[in-house]
């Protein structure tokens, strides 16, 4: 009960969890929630403003914007989730090795410095430019641009552990490094990784949407939120619903995850500054 009570005191976290839940439900129940298919065109009803028939209006092909947003939650969540899992695995691996092995660490530090010499978004854009624009490549670009920053924080969490008595004791008792890393180091940075991973989930969705917005991620006619905003912006003054509503969907998803991450940080790892 005490855990639940502590969670309950974090009002922001509860709000965030509800927002995330709403987006997840949209993704799971898309076929039932969306009144129309994401690609269904009703040409005679194109570019209509919001109404009861079309909650968020229709686009220039007569597709229902609300249905596309609901279906789009699948793309954004899936992309964000896969990108985050990959980032957490790679970033934790690199960060733990970097913090635990001093010699290897010097090498990794230089590499990460070089990596971080590119602004994150520029790096992602360049990767997509090399690989070619597609949703999968955008996801890969997001991962590659998030890993160095992620591993840097993990590294700084691992570093002080090296000097701790229980690690020294395990080492003196003859435990192999692999065992020390798995049994002693990793569990002690687990909370940092959970909090960091949650906050990176939010960034991954934002960055993925930004890449799709630039035409480097999801391609039309995929109902991806960033791509929808990009397609809608040519109707700037004429059809505001084409870009305002998908944007609200992004904000709900990202804000929910951020609030959740903030709450998790206060509960699990109050000293972590991210």
């Amino acid at each position: 009960m005490t855990v639940l009570r502590r969670v309950g005191r974090q009002k922001g976290m509860v709000v965030g969890a509800l927002m995330v839940l709403a987006v997840v439900m949209c993704a799971l129940l898309a076929p039932y929630l969306a009144p129309y298919g994401p690609l269904d065109m009703q040409v005679e009803e194109r570019l209509q403003g919001p109404s009861f028939r079309h909650l968020c209006g229709t686009d220039e092909f007569g597709r229902d914007v609300f249905s596309r947003i609901v279906w789009g939650s699948r793309i954004s969540l899936e992309m964000g989730l896969v990108a985050t899992v990959l980032t957490v695995i790679l970033g934790t691996g690199v960060g733990v090795l970097w913090g635990y092995y001093p010699r290897l660490g010097v090498f990794i530090a230089r590499l990460v410095d070089l990596w971080l010499a590119f602004p994150t978004m520029l790096f992602a854009i360049v990767i997509v430019a090399v690989l070619g624009p597609s949703l999968r490549n955008a996801m890969l670009a997001v991962v590659l641009s998030m890993v160095p920053g992620f591993s840097r924080v993990v590294h700084s969490a691992v570093l002080p552990l090296r000097e701790k008595e229980f690690v020294e004791a395990a080492s003196a008792a003859g435990a192999p490094n692999r065992r020390i890393l798995w049994r002693h180091v990793l569990p002690n940075v687990a909370s940092t990784i959970i909090v960091l991973g949650t906050l990176h989930f939010a960034s991954a969705i934002l960055m993925g949407a930004a890449l799709s917005f630039l035409g480097l991620g999801a391609q039309p006619p995929q109902p991806e939120w960033g791509a929808m905003i990009n397609a809608g912006r040519q109707w700037l003054g004429l059809a505001w619903w084409l870009y305002i509503f998908p944007g609200i969907a992004i904000v709900v998803a990202v804000l929910g995850i951020n609030l959740l991450g903030d709450g998790l940080r206060d509960l699990l790892d109050p000293r972590l500054k991210v």
């Binding site: 939010a202 934002l206 949407a209 930004a210 917005f213 960033g226 905003i229 990009n230 912006r233 700037l236 870009y243 305002i244 998908p246 944007g247 992004i250 904000v251 990202v254 804000l255 951020n258």
Partner: peptide
């Protein structure tokens, strides 16, 4: 949590 491109628009 605001996407820059959306805030811009």
């Amino acid at each position: 949590s605001l996407p820059s491109f959306w805030l811009a628009l």
